[in-house]
Design a binder for these strands. Structure first.
Lengths: 211, 211
DNA sequence: CATAGAACAGACAAGTCTGTCTACTCTCGC
DNA sequence: GCGAGAGTAGACAGACTTGTCTGTTCTATG
């Protein structure tokens, strides 16, 4: 709508082209592994232009994370799974179908937010932005859990998130079935949270003992 | 046994001191973020000494991964959980108790193998070493599953691994209860695999549909 | 046509990184 | 006492990093 990235006359175009290239490169290869020079060259832009639109590389990374949040978390995971299920339960489980498709698509690159978190360390400002992104995803899960009438939704969302993150890493490691495996566990998790009673039926050794 | 790291006269000492420092730094801050100069300075060693013992930084990283495999995967996760349970089931579940303790200890740094994998990309030789390490962990899980008389142990181990990886990442992100959450799901997973029937009771939308 | 704003091209500074190399010192065994 | 082997100290090369800065060219608008 705003800009045809080929139209060099449009002033909005340079920024968009930079961001698109950055998205492509950062999401596939990580942050540290991609230098601004490469972004500049691949987006056919002058260095000064990049630094006019983004004060530092960090600013560019933050902008990239925002776009990732829109494209991945919202447009893909949230909206696509919502479209595929008619009840909150189905919509929750459909998230893993979406992940499964993503994993097998050409777009499957790497888990950006986790990657940033590990690459920059937990205290880096960019990492904090990544953590916010992950939190939004959990919010979506929690909301659906509430609509589905589940109990202990906060804990539910955290457990659910473990399954999502774990399956994405497993897929990255080479397990093509990871999302389907996680979905099975996710279905059980839903059942566990249909009742209000806590998970106090955990087998032996719940609390880690001393020496 | 081999060496007192303070004894500068012992020829085995320099290598050990370098490796110890590398372990400390790499496991806490990642690979790319730590340069050889820092390793050299922190281990009070000359640059030539480091490069005498390790041909390149990559070689040092590989040696670090081997040590990590011993210290983390084998000594900690495998042996410690074995000690804590008397049956294979208990030993499996105790893995999450060990993780829980680790997460809350000062030693909790980051998930080294996943970190390397993401940092270097899946095709890097160092990443392949990391994948081998992760595979060994799954082998331990599979073996215990067989001893416990579970079915479809290969798939069981892969699912189990999703829970482990997911909970470690979640803990890194800030969820201190991640290992305990994962343990609950793990207990359910064991129950699922007590019977030989496949997981074909997955709810609606198992196969992701088209557009 | 003229001028302002933006983009382009690319040199440059200042720092990082890995890996090499020289020159000196220390200690052990002969 | 002396030579060998290992360690120390640190300069250095060459590549890479982010970010600045100087010009030039293009385009839209008055």
């Amino acid at each position: 709508m705003t800009a045809d990235p080929e139209d060099h006359r449009n002033p909005y175009v340079a920024r968009e082209r930079i961001l698109r290239t950055a998205y492509e490169l950062f999401s596939r290869r990580g942050i540290r592994a991609v230098g601004v020079d490469e972004v500049i060259e691949r987006s056919s832009v002058a260095k000064a232009t990049l630094y006019r639109h983004f004060r530092t590389k960090n600013d560019l990374v933050i902008a990239f994370l925002e776009r990732r949040q829109q494209v991945w978390t919202r447009d893909m995971v949230r909206d696509e799974s919502e479209r595929r299920g008619s009840t909150p339960d189905e919509q929750l489980l459909a998230m893993f179908d979406v992940l499964d498709e993503w994993i097998h698509s050409d777009d499957f690159d790497r888990c950006t937010f986790i990657n940033v978190l590990l690459e920059m360390g937990p205290d880096h400002p960019v990492s904090r932005a990544a953590i916010d992104c992950l939190e939004e995803l959990r919010g979506i899960v929690k909301e659906r859990a509430e609509k589905a009438g589940l109990h202990r939704t906060e804990e539910f969302a955290l457990s659910w998130h473990i399954l999502m993150k774990g399956s994405i890493i497993a897929a990255y490691e080479g397990d093509g079935e990871a999302a389907r495996r996680a979905k099975i566990m996710a279905a059980d998790l839903i059942e566990q949270h249909r009742t209000p009673d806590g998970p106090e039926r955990v087998p032996a050794g719940s609390k880690a003992g001393g020496s």
